Computed example of a mutant assay.
Amino acid sequence: MTSGDQFEPSTKTVNSLAIVEAVANREGVPALQLQPPLYEAVDPDALDTLLTTERSVSQSPITIQFEYAGYRIIVDSDDEFRIE
């Protein structure tokens, strides 16, 4: 994969697990072996809640960016995310 890859998870919404799996795939390691754990970069439960709550409460777009495992993760409320 190249820098700035865009992903559409197989589930209906982006969630923390999809992000971990995509970064692990890029790193060539199983998701459970990825270091550091996602919770050291962002609260996974809060991320999942924010993304699902935002979609159900408002049609306003939302974008969340954070650094994880040496990558910039950009999550959009249109159910896609990018790894740069």
Results as ranks from 00 to 15, higher is better:
71 Y>G: 02
84 E>H: 01
3 S>H: 04
10 S>Q: 13
14 V>R: 00
10 S>K: 12
28 G>T: 07
7 F>C: 02
41 A>E: 05
28 G>L: 09
66 F>H: 07
22 A>M: 03
79 D>A: 03
33 Q>R: 12
44 P>K: 05
27 E>G: 04
64 I>P: 04
5 D>F: 02
28 G>P: 11
50 L>I: 14
7 F>Q: 04
44 P>C: 10
69 A>Q: 01
16 S>P: 06
56 S>E: 15
76 D>V: 06
27 E>M: 13
4 G>H: 03
75 V>Y: 00
79 D>N: 07
29 V>D: 06
1 M>G: 04
52 T>W: 09
31 A>G: 06
78 D>Q: 10
4 G>D: 02
14 V>N: 01
17 L>N: 11
64 I>V: 14
23 V>M: 04
39 Y>N: 14
78 D>C: 09
44 P>D: 10
4 G>P: 03
78 D>H: 08
69 A>D: 05
69 A>E: 02
7 F>K: 00
10 S>V: 12
76 D>W: 04
76 D>R: 11
56 S>F: 10
4 G>K: 01
46 A>M: 12
39 Y>E: 14
36 P>V: 11
31 A>K: 13
20 V>T: 13
50 L>F: 12
38 L>D: 11
14 V>L: 05
51 L>S: 09
84 E>P: 00
53 T>Q: 15
41 A>V: 08
61 P>V: 10
23 V>A: 08
37 P>G: 11
8 E>Q: 11
47 L>F: 11
10 S>G: 15
64 I>S: 02
43 D>P: 08
5 D>M: 04
6 Q>R: 09
36 P>M: 06
52 T>P: 08
72 R>C: 02
28 G>C: 06
36 P>A: 11
9 P>K: 02
78 D>T: 10
61 P>W: 05
77 S>E: 02
11 T>I: 08
79 D>F: 01
30 P>D: 08
48 D>F: 13
79 D>P: 01
76 D>P: 00
69 A>S: 07
11 T>C: 06
59 Q>P: 11
4 G>W: 02
12 K>E: 15
